[in-house]
């Protein structure tokens, strides 16, 4: 979000204990870190990885919903879905820009996505099999994303926090349009309601996995919390998501596919919360490592867009170069 010219983080800062303590003191005082400020190399690397991953998730996330734009069942739904997928492209763009303030380019990040070194959210490696998935993705996937994203608006890194404020403001219609689709289906014909339940059945567990491994198994969490890149743990956010979603599912008349889901007043220091069934982490790791149904196709599609578009980007640059040469000659 800020120009390359403003980038100060060369990673060359001498990371004495004194330097690290001073940095931590700024974080603890809730000061925002800006691109030109000295920062530990680990902080910079963590952000590059996380913001890049986040940007890739938005851009790859265009594909499963893009799969239904042509088949949206009414003109109103078609416009809303198209606007939503367009927003996701915009969010990817804002986030790439935020990462670019840390000295990486969008081209580099794109190459990493296409060669498989960079990851994106595992949820997008599941297929969208019916129109109800457009409802469930909006309701659940965006709902989960919002849980994750709202705390990021207070992230210690200024450009990321600012990008997230924009993202969250725009995202507020996404979950609502998804829930409205579900609501319409659940009030519709038996076949439509069945479609809605089926989408919930397929997407529920992958959505819980979106929050990442249990706190004890999360490799980067502790440091990210200390640096205030992250503000809540994976399990805390997952718990909040479940609590918010159960009532919404009840209102729809849908059943959450977890027989072990049970309210417990004693959780969260007396505030209460849900116990949920065992998450199949072997599935999570399998999908993250590349063996989801859609992993190969998603990356291939992004690669095709990038490769097939190369001649367009080159032409625009060539024209610009010719024009400035001509202007210089005049």
């Amino acid at each position: 979000m800020y120009s390359q010219g403003l980038i100060g983080a060369d990673g060359g800062s001498e990371e004495t204990q004194e330097f690290l303590d001073a940095f931590q003191a700024r974080i603890d005082a809730e000061e925002k870190i800006e691109p030109t400020d000295p920062m530990p190399e680990g902080y910079r690397r963590t952000l590059v990885r996380q913001i890049g991953q986040h940007a890739h998730s938005e851009v790859v996330g265009m594909l499963p919903e893009g799969n239904w734009i042509s088949r949206a069942p009414s003109l109103k739904r078609k416009l809303a879905l198209l606007a939503k997928v367009q927003d996701e492209g915009g969010h990817g763009l804002y986030l790439y820009s935020a990462a670019e303030t840390l000295g990486v380019t969008r081209e580099q990040m794109t190459e990493e996505l296409l060669d498989g070194t960079a990851k994106y959210s595992s949820i997008f490696n599941y297929p969208t099999l019916s129109w109800a998935d457009m409802g469930a993705v909006g309701w659940l996937v965006d709902g989960a994303a919002i849980m994750n994203q709202i705390p990021l608006c207070r992230c210690s890194y200024g450009p990321y926090a600012r990008a997230m404020i924009r993202v969250c403001a725009e995202e507020s219609f996404h979950q609502r349009q998804g829930y409205e689709i579900m609501l319409t289906l659940c009030k519709g014909t038996p076949a439509q309601k069945e479609m809605a339940q089926d989408a919930l059945n397929r997407l529920w567990w992958p959505c819980l996995m979106m929050f990442g491994p249990h706190d004890g198994d999360s490799a980067h969490s502790e440091k990210s919390m200390k640096w205030k890149i992250k503000r809540f743990s994976n399990d805390e956010l997952r718990g909040k998501f479940i609590a918010a979603t159960v009532r919404q599912a009840e209102f729809l008349g849908l059943t959450i596919p977890d027989p072990d889901l049970k309210w417990d007043d004693s959780l969260n220091g007396g505030k209460g919360g849900y116990h949920h069934g065992e998450i199949d982490w072997s599935e999570f790791w399998r999908v993250v490592k590349g063996d989801g149904v859609m992993n190969v196709e998603r990356v291939e599609m992004r690669k095709a867009a990038w490769d097939d578009g190369a001649w367009v980007r080159e032409a625009a640059l060539a024209h610009a170069a010719k024009r400035s040469a001509k202007m210089a000659a005049e």
């Binding site: 893009g66 198209l82 367009q86 492209g89 990817g92 763009l93 867009a305 980007r313």
Partner: peptide
């Protein structure tokens, strides 16, 4: 036009082509 969404040569054009599509589908409606 909406077939381009997610497949454009540069992210900026994903947004531009989607805007084109939203404009004309809105008019169609």
């Amino acid at each position: 036009l909406s077939e381009w969404c997610g497949h454009a040569p540069i992210l900026e054009e994903d947004l531009a082509l989607s805007n084109f599509a939203l404009d004309v589908i809105g008019t169609a409606r």
